[in-house]
Nucleic acid binder design. Structure first.
Lengths: 334, 334
DNA sequence: CACACGAACTGTAACGATATAGTCCGAACG
DNA sequence: CGTTCGGACTATATCGTTACAGTTCGTGTG
């Protein structure tokens, strides 16, 4: 019914193995033979049977992604991008929820759960160094996200500080004189909030300014409703605030609503930059200026690291840091 | 390394085939033998290797879902539910976008595209009877959604008229005297809008009322922004409107915003019922009363039809209609 | 008692690919 | 000229499962 390697082999007058070698770019096939085989492949419209290949290679074709929660758009977008990238090679992504707790993430990493995957991408949030360091799995694991994790693992990092600095520099460069960081914090130096706060400070000192101590607006939760309420309140109290760096796009959406509540026009009275480049930011008027943490770059390299490690478990682990870029839209004046 | 059927066979002192038969519930194995085999399965922690089974059975483990567009929440939720249901049996869902046009849907149904699926679920929107009737595929196809399609196919329908009637009856029962249908239409009798409009009319006549001819508020597009604008305008013009049946939840969200714009309180001044039971409706205050088109039911039966047809291509096609139910939340007074 | 029959179970050959261990043959070398 | 060497290619076994065609063996029948 369907065309198999056997048909291609017959049509081009070579053995099964030669066809296999040609298709997989393995050595051991002459130049003319390669051409002849590829012609037959084209002519017959042959495509490899991934199921058979997987059986032979002992792979499942499934990659696991473990994130703290499904319902947050950041992870949704990450999952969508990864799924697309993996689909190119006929693989699938299964997303598991760890519940933002260390226990959840460790449970999701139990042997039984992972046995069905060829590799696992772990979004390390809420996991401490020791937890990750104690991990012993038979399946390749690639870490995704924050900094400060054991170098024993492949890791695609996100340059939180550089991104935050970039955002703040842009606000200052567009004429903001009094820039709030919403969702910032000085606690737990390793946390995403603290690192982005450091970037916000660095942008100030680099420009010869001193970040005001009450420029950090802490939020109990990085959620829309919470940000909206606290930003509204703060803007009513501090009429001189003319710029906001929101630590996430979620927070930025809340801040936009809060600013409107407080009677500020964006970007005329108040400029705003977010962080994450969620696709929704493109559609909410006047368009959210934000930091793209290099999603495409991260996904591309994460998949590459996975493939390398599946191929050879003993290759040296790599730590990569994705470059952040500024995406200018309507919430800033330049 | 991993435990195979061979290990189970050895451990329970039977042949490979007996283990296979027991596991798949095939006849030809005695009662004690079954018990013995299942004990060994438990003890060794055996799990079937889906890759091997697929190779042997000539299946890929992938099901295709073809929807008009990705970005609409209705299809997103449908896809999520289906993916979950299929994951139970270790299969995967691949979602393809047809672009809401007949050409797109037909292109997505081309032989080459479908060859990689065990079966395809086709959400028939924008396809006419003839287009579907001309379809000749080697892969099992199950239709999803609207009515009026060739009985040659398995089809899980959605009871648009009954659902719309249910919504309107509820509004009338809760004291609404003047119920608008937003997004309704009398054109193209087969369209979703027209059928739901018929349901709205039937609810009126069943109650001994005459639906007012200008009770149908047509929308150029079933989108939030559009519904918001036209509902606001209409409510300002017609102060006596005290109920709205929105043909979709999307439209209902827009209508809620439009009502607020027009200064109406929900549900005090104006009651509202949507259609689709999108999960978002639960979270938007005061909670959207809506019609659940039987998502779970549809998904359950769609998967069953798929499996039946994969098993036996010649089984008689079935047309099923999912039962609609009312989900009462805060936008209605009872 | 010979025979047929069906239930319970087994042996073997696939499914389509790849890893491994060859085989073959022409060129290079002493 | 005989030997070695390496590049090009092939034969076979195998991955874990299931379809199909047997093989037993106990029971019921004439």
């Amino acid at each position: 019914m369907t065309i198999t390697m056997r048909d291609v082999a017959q049509a081009s007058g070579v053995s099964l193995m030669t066809v296999s070698n040609v298709i997989n770019g393995q050595p051991g096939a002459g130049a003319q033979t390669r051409v002849r085989v590829m012609e037959a492949v084209e002519r017959l419209g042959y495509e490899v049977n991934l199921t058979a290949r997987r059986l032979r290679k002992g792979l499942t074709g499934n990659i696991g992604l473990i994130v703290p929660r499904f319902d947050h758009p950041y992870f949704g977008e990450l999952a969508a991008r990864l799924a697309t990238a993996l689909a190119e090679t006929g693989r699938h992504l299964s997303v598991e929820q760890s519940g933002a707790s260390a226990e959840g993430e460790l449970a999701a990493l139990s042997h039984a759960r992972l046995a069905t995957y060829d590799a696992v991408l772990l979004n390390v949030v809420g996991l401490r160094y020791e937890d990750v360091d104690n991990l012993r799995t038979s399946v390749p694991v690639v870490l995704l996200g924050e900094q400060g994790m054991p170098v024993r693992f492949d890791h695609v990092r996100l340059d939180n500080e550089a991104g935050a600095r970039l955002a703040t520099v842009h606000l200052l460069g567009c004429g903001a004189r009094n820039v709030l960081i919403v969702g910032g914090s000085h606690e737990d130096q390793q946390s995403m909030q603290a690192i982005r706060t450091k970037g916000w400070e660095r942008a100030h000192t680099d420009a010869g300014l001193t970040p005001s101590p009450d420029g950090v607006l802490r939020l109990p939760e990085l959620e829309v409703a919470c940000a909206r309420e606290l930003v509204r309140e703060r803007l009513l109290r501090s009429p001189d605030v003319d710029g906001i760096f929101a630590v996430t796009d979620q927070v930025a959406f809340g801040a936009m609503a809060g600013a409107r509540d407080a009677g500020r026009r964006i970007p005329e009275d108040l400029q705003l930059v977010g962080f994450d480049n969620l696709s929704f930011g493109e559609h909410v008027p006047p368009g959210l200026t934000t930091i793209d943490p290099g999603h495409d770059w991260m996904v591309e390299h994460a998949v590459r690291l996975i493939d390398q490690r599946i191929e050879d478990r003993d290759v040296a682990p790599q730590q990569l840091t994705s470059p952040s870029t500024l995406v200018v839209r309507g919430t800033t004046r330049c």
